[in-house]
Design a protein around this nucleic acid. Structure first.
Lengths: 201, 201
DNA sequence: CTGTAAGTGGACGCCCGCGTCCGTTTGGCT
DNA sequence: AGCCAAACGGACGCGGGCGTCCACTTACAG
């Protein structure tokens, strides 16, 4: 297990490469077989390395989750918490817009994927801290809760345009609208927030 | 064709009833066969009345589209265009939150469904007029375009919560955030809007 | 160079959805 | 009451995904 044979390692790499690409462009609703086919590999080989779709997905998105974490950590380091908060929204939305599967993976309940959900939890915790500071500085509306960010990330995932470029452009505008919505000074009180549970598969 | 035999009419009614229910709760990704099964009808009977899924879907959602139109027409009649605009967002979001399939149907390109797409076009035109008045009255941000509303409706469709009630609650909060975002007086200029084409099937 | 464990992918059996055909049933008109 | 077109639904052949098994191949250690 520690050391894969060189050919096995090559296949594993190719599978992950293909999976990342196809998940990004088509979303997670791609059959295991389709991934195997595109990687020019037999179904058995795919299943040997990744016994379940969950295993494949979480491995494939480890990189994206890392990028997400980087974005958030950098934003948290911003001395202006509101600017950091806005950066998080813009960058994270773009990340999700460029990778259709990532939102689905991010929102999915993967009981076995400890690293993945640990990372998600930490990212959300970092954002919560940043939000608290932005609230205290008076720039973020006081009734903001982290669930609101989860909600708009889910919502952002619902936006589909004709091309990847158009999706990114739409998400950019959506992010700007989200920033406007979250800025302090809103005139209407918000209805109660809702906890959004992770969804099975 | 003009007059169906009574038993055929009963079956047609039951199919539509079942389809509306299952599309509302499960979304459009339900097989024709599953609809037939739940309606206690053979596949052939279903296909005889509704040769394609498109035919079934558009018939099933005629009612919802009518409700949508009613909401919009009532809101357009409001002497205060901004209040009318807000009402549209709140009511339409709730309609979509209560019926998972409706957003998908609303956003789908159904080339054969003349009534359906005509209604959608008219609804959007009504909203565009309302928005123009709300913009002129100075309550709606000047850079708002109808595509923004389409975008947030799509986005609203991405929100999934544990139960129907939770979904509706989440949509309600999301609608309030959308209202905040669209209100005049936003401090940041928005990135360019994007036309969101209807999606095939 | 060679033995062997690791690795491979084609093939299998299963289930499910698709759209259609056709032998049987039945509503409704005369 | 009797007829027949309308309506029914079970069954079919096709394609595709699922996870697994196994006979063949190959990397690499000795």
């Amino acid at each position: 297990m520690t050391h894969l044979r060189s050919d096995a390692q090559d296949n594993r790499d190719k599978i992950l490469e293909v999976a990342r690409e196809v998940f990004a462009t088509e979303g997670l609703d791609v059959s295991m077989r389709e991934v195997a086919r595109r990687a020019q590999v037999g179904p058995a080989t795919l299943y040997r390395r990744f016994p379940t779709k969950e295993a494949l997905v979480t491995q494939a998105f480890e990189e994206q989750m890392g990028a997400c974490r980087d974005v958030v950590e950098e934003a948290v380091a911003d001395p202006d918490p509101w600017r950091g908060f806005c950066t998080v929204i813009e960058k994270v939305f773009e990340l999700h817009a460029r990778d259709r599967g990532f939102t689905a993976a991010f929102m999915s309940a993967y009981p076995k994927a400890l690293d993945f959900s640990k990372n998600r939890g930490e990212v959300l915790a970092l954002i919560a801290g940043l939000a608290a500071r932005a609230r205290e500085s008076g720039d973020l509306r006081p009734d903001f809760v982290v669930e609101d960010l989860v909600m708009v990330i889910m919502a952002n995932g619902g936006i589909r345009a004709g091309s990847p470029a158009a999706s990114v452009a739409a998400s950019r505008r959506f992010a700007a609208l989200a920033v406007e919505a979250f800025r302090a000074g809103g005139r209407a009180p918000l209805p109660p927030a809702v906890r959004l549970p992770l969804m099975p598969v």
